[in-house]
Design a protein around this nucleic acid. Structure first.
Lengths: 181, 181
DNA sequence: CAAATATAGTTAGCTAGCTAACTATATTGA
DNA sequence: TCAATATAGTTAGCTAGCTAACTATATTTG
């Protein structure tokens, strides 16, 4: 749903009405608005960033995998290591690597010492794709953050950390709920 | 990839090195860190929020569709209206509605005046699910934002708008790139 | 008023994730 | 040491998105 292009979003007024009817009386409407704003900001940002990646025939996942290989010794990693680093399921990595092999950005090598395992290596083509893409990547990031001053960047970073605290608490809340059943 | 559980994320140091090699010399490393922080904060928050929804057998998309119906006249909307409001493709809506019909949260009515069209109506069961979920929803949002003061909420909202400006500029940049080819 | 066009919903088939389960090989430990 | 267990990669089949293309009905227009 991250790519939906909503034409009807709840505004302050509608949200207030719903909260008045169904929320705890001490619920802060502006907090709920902020939550929706954060979703919106990320989703729009990510759609734009995905387009930048797509212009180089990349997705963020493919890009990150290529970067892991780029920084690895001899440009090589086993699929299972990639899966761990990414935090993705091994079959997911298999599919992505197949795609990258077809495009010629990586190749499959047999691993010494372990006949179960293989090694994935970044090809010269893969390196070239990264070297071409990286400047564009940082330019795009610069554009995204250009309206913020250095001190605003610091402030935003601090405030995001406070959201992270809220997320951790929500996870704890959910675990507790589960436990109670 | 929003659900990946990364075990290897680029830190300040690695990012500096890559920017030094491939970024414009005036690229701001802390801006790049902020970009990754914003992605991280949203993704962790959303994973936690999705769990709250899942506890009521909801996804955010299903929840939003139910809310559109909840606020609609006679609790009825056509699938095509839902697709427009969501900004999703019509076949996507068809599938979600099939799922909601199986769960008994909505029913299909024939539209008067247009034999091509149908109407989707929220059932009493659907209403009950919402009425049970909404308090939990606002409680979760409250938990997420609890570490922020009222003034911090205002500041964060302002700073997110500055990211929105950056996103718009990135979109313009991309359009220009396309045009140039 | 009939033909062309537009709209509503669905179907088929694509991508990128996931889990479960399989095969082959390594490792552990009784 | 050899049987049990664990790990690596893959395959099959699930979900939630998408686009293209189909059928049926409305609307527009020559």
């Amino acid at each position: 749903m991250d790519n939906f292009k909503f034409t009807d979003r709840p505004d302050q007024k509608r949200l207030s009405r719903t909260i008045a009817e169904y929320g705890d009386p001490k619920t802060d409407v502006s907090a709920a608005v902020l939550f929706l704003d954060l979703q919106w900001t990320y989703r729009e940002m990510q759609k734009a960033y995905d387009q930048v990646l797509a212009a180089s025939d990349l997705t963020e996942t493919r890009f990150i995998i290529l970067m892991f290989l780029f920084r690895a010794e001899n440009y090589c990693l086993a699929p299972s290591e990639l899966a761990t680093k990414l935090g993705a399921a091994r079959p997911t990595v298999t599919k992505i690597l197949n795609r990258l092999m077809i495009s010629g950005l990586v190749i499959k090598l047999s691993a010494p010492n372990d006949k179960r395992s293989i090694l994935i290596q970044l090809t010269p083509t893969g390196k070239a794709v990264l070297q071409k893409f990286l400047p564009r990547n940082f330019e795009a990031v610069q554009t995204i953050t250009a309206a913020l001053s250095a001190s605003e960047i610091k402030t935003l970073s601090t405030l995001l950390q406070k959201i992270n605290i809220g997320t951790r608490n929500l996870n704890l809340e959910e675990e507790r709920h589960h436990g109670n059943n």
